[in-house]
Amino acid sequence: MKVKILEWKSFATWHWDLATSADDSGYVEELCGICRVSFDGTCPNCKYPGDDCPIVLGSGCTHNFHLHCILKWLEQESSKGLCPMCRQIFTFKEPEQTSDVLINLKTLIDGHRVMRERFQQGNEQEFEAFGADQDLQMA
């Protein structure tokens, strides 16, 4: 007897491949630290998971977020560019392919870095010039 397979229609599920070990089901049950939704789901503003709502892996710390979630967080000045979970300066692992949103994220992180540096300078010059504080606030 010869068996000739003509077509094998099959199904698979996708999931984010995170460093943390997967459980028995093979899925990572880790949630986004900001929106508390699984990474395989979407941030609160997105409808479709996956391509449309990617995740960002922290490189300075081990925390990961939905790209949209961390963007929103870093857009607030009060975030001071820190990871919302561990308060270290947030940096991320840059994937090979980049996108507009990732460039935005990068700009934000850079912005916060500049701010921090100015603030530090400001601290050093505190006694020298009164106006520096004002400049900082205006910035």
């Binding site: 229609k9 199904f11 698979a12 599920t13 996708w14 999931h15 491949d17 093979g26 990617p54 994937p95």
Partner: peptide, 14 residues
């Protein structure tokens, strides 16, 4: 960043 997991029993074979 993503990977797939096969569900062998789902689907059909001709």
């Amino acid at each position: 960043g993503r990977t797939v997991k096969h569900i062998p029993s789902l689907g059909s074979v001709t």
